[in-house]
Amino acid sequence: TRLTSKYPDLLLELVTSPQTVRVARREADLFLSFFKPQGKVLVGECIGRFATRLYASPSYLEKYGIPEGKEDLQRHRFVGYIEELVQLEAVRWLEDFIPSPNLAFASNSMIAQMFAASSGAGIVALPEFALCVNTGLVNVLPALQGYRDVWLSVHQDLANLSRIRVVSRFLKELMTSDEAKLGGRQMWTQNE
């Protein structure tokens, strides 16, 4: 990557977790999240936002039809999260579009949801950045979209370390760079 090429001694470790990482207890140096973390010893800022949209496979749309409006969604099948396993409220992006979806497939994995939808299981709500993987999904009701903010947090004792500043600056720049574009659309937007 650009970052490790410029700083070859920098070791990056990426941990993904459906649970909140406790930066205040130094379980991580930096924490990216879809929500504003709470804590007196945290320094955090919103560094961007991303859109969520509805997607379906052409085979699903051929079989069940293309929804013409939001009110039309009640008659469709959906792919979403298993209610009992949702640990982060911020991933409830399907509920931004339809409060009580008729689920045909549910998983605690966004990747599993994406591939289930691509096989025709139903309509799925995904962040735009997920479509970097070519799954054949097409946007349903393009005028509808939800948003989630992206927060970057660090323990206040670590905020001024050079490695933290370098990675923080890189992540902020990445949010609005050309690399953050998908199909000519900006995936991330910088918050004002």
Rank of each mutant, 00 (worst) to 15 (best):
R2S: 15
S5W: 09
P8K: 09
D9Y: 09
L11V: 15
L12F: 10
T16G: 03
T20P: 03
T20Q: 09
V21Q: 01
V23A: 12
R25P: 00
A28F: 01
D29N: 15
L30Y: 03
L32V: 13
F34T: 04
F35A: 07
P37H: 06
G39E: 01
G39I: 05
K40M: 06
I47D: 09
G48R: 05
G48D: 01
F50T: 08
F50H: 06
F50N: 03
A56F: 00
E62I: 06
E62A: 12
I66K: 09
P67F: 01
P67H: 04
R75V: 08
F78V: 07
F78P: 09
V79R: 04
V79Q: 00
G80N: 01
I82K: 00
E83F: 02
Q87W: 03
L88K: 08
R92C: 12
W93P: 05
E95L: 07
L103H: 15
S107Q: 02
N108F: 06
M110F: 06
I111G: 02
Q113D: 01
M114Y: 03
M114G: 07
S119D: 12
G122I: 11
V124T: 04
P127S: 13
A130K: 01
T135P: 09
T135Q: 05
V138S: 13
V140M: 04
P142D: 09
G146I: 01
Y147R: 07
V150M: 13
W151K: 04
H155F: 07
Q156K: 15
S162Y: 03
R163S: 13
V167T: 14
V167M: 11
S168D: 07
L171R: 12
K172F: 12
M175L: 14
M175P: 02
M175T: 11
T176Y: 10
T176R: 09
E179T: 14
E179F: 15
L182S: 08
G184Y: 04
R185E: 15
R185I: 10
W188Y: 15
T189C: 02
T189H: 08
